[in-house]
Design a protein around this nucleic acid. Structure first.
Lengths: 233, 233
DNA sequence: CGTCATCAATAAGTCTGACTTTTTGTCTCC
DNA sequence: GGAGACAAAAAGTCAGACTTATTGATGACG
């Protein structure tokens, strides 16, 4: 979606990254740069660059005389967009989708509350536009159009919160929403109640009602949790 | 704290990373690998590895015939532990501390609620132990001991939530708490009310009372926000 | 005078091969 | 059986030559 295999080392990462995150090499497995270089038919320099990137993601650890060892899952930098994409594309997909949805349920309500206090007039306009777009595509199997506005809606909320950490989760939420539409659930039209909630959130943000925006968004995320059978109290 | 300059490329990152995150090279600035290699007295291979790592953090972008350009702050991967550490150590410190505290206020209450449902007996024991340790060091300028137990407490909560994304924020919270003690506020003994809240959270988690654990933790994070003059509600 | 194609300069990208350094396993010797 | 010396192994580093893509300038043509 953003950085597809730029250069040879990128191509190596595109296949080695998914393999590691999918658990094909269990934690503790040892890889040797020379062998990897041969396998991908690249020079050692290129292979070393790829290993350095994997190392900065805490996926592997390179040590002299030993080789490149795969780290346990608990040490991976699970916030790296690339790692998230790899896991969403592989065997770890369900687990990744669940943990991301729980993260959403924590962050988005607070972000919506902040958005109600900090959103600019322009952002409020965008928000209502997105909500109306969702309404317009909520019936008649227009899932693509609906998804587009849904993603834009949540991205604007996170952006309008004024918090850089929240804003950077826009891509993650987009990935979750897209994945949900494409693979798992959502064969029919979206839940009308959810659509209404989005419209109401837009209204609350416009009105500067932080508590209401937070509460409404919490209801939205509860719905997302329920879709994945994650029982929140 | 975790990966100090391993190898030459690590040493380069240790000085170049902070410079970039501190804004010494404004967005759009162009660096050339050859010049950088000369400056740090390393070979181009090593310099290229360092650039690749910076690229995977979305701090810079390397393009042919142009050079290595610094990306705008809005594109940085602000969840990378290394980036967080660099920013906390430099001019961006106040901004970083604020956004992290807001993130805590969103995540920790939800994590505490989940911990009440999923914590093992062992984790409950650790939690009460930490809380008691905080009580024991809450008077008489024992800030170091207090901090130690405070950090451990929040780490256990995030771990016990059972969500990998939450668990990975343990280091971040540790960094925030440590920074708060060392630099900014907290010259005197900690607020007794906060200490009590921690004890009560440990009790609620042990009792499996998710709603109570969440609410109490929310009060703790509100206190953290107030310390930084971030007016929530 | 403006637009488009051509071309050369430039800086990153790649490869190769030799050498260094650290770590670890082993083998001896006490 | 333990301590120290030694050798092998793999990553780390460096230097130099070459390739490739991009861009900015130059010039031709409308």
């Amino acid at each position: 979606m953003s950085t597809p295999g730029r250069g040879l080392h990128g191509h190596v990462l595109d296949t080695l990254g998914p393999e590691i995150t999918a658990g094909e090499y269990p934690p503790g497995s040892v890889l040797r740069t020379d062998e990897l270089a041969q396998r991908f038919d690249v020079s050692r320099s290129v292979m070393r660059e790829a290993v350095r990137v994997l190392e900065s993601m805490y996926l592997v650890e390179s040590r002299r005389r030993v080789g490149v060892t795969v780290r346990p899952r608990s040490e991976w930098n699970v916030y790296d967009p690339q790692v998230i994409r790899w896991r969403l594309a592989g065997a770890d997909r369900p687990r990744q989708l669940r943990s991301l949805t729980v993260l959403r349920s924590a962050v988005e309500p607070v972000a919506a509350g902040l958005a109600a206090r900090h959103a600019t007039a322009e952002q409020c306009a965008e928000l209502t536009e997105c909500a109306l777009g969702m309404v317009a595509h909520s019936r008649g199997h227009k899932l693509e159009g609906y998804l587009l506005h849904d993603v834009a809606f949540h991205r604007v909320v996170l952006e309008a919160s004024g918090n850089e950490m929240f804003a950077r989760l826009g891509d993650v939420v987009a990935e979750v929403l897209t994945g949900r539409t494409q693979h798992d659930v959502m064969f029919e039209d979206p839940d009308p109640a959810a659509v209404t909630l989005h419209v109401q959130v837009a209204e609350a943000v416009r009105a500067g009602d932080a508590a209401r925006a937070e509460q409404l968004t919490r209801e939205i995320t509860v719905g997302a949790l329920q879709e994945l059978d994650i029982l929140a109290p």
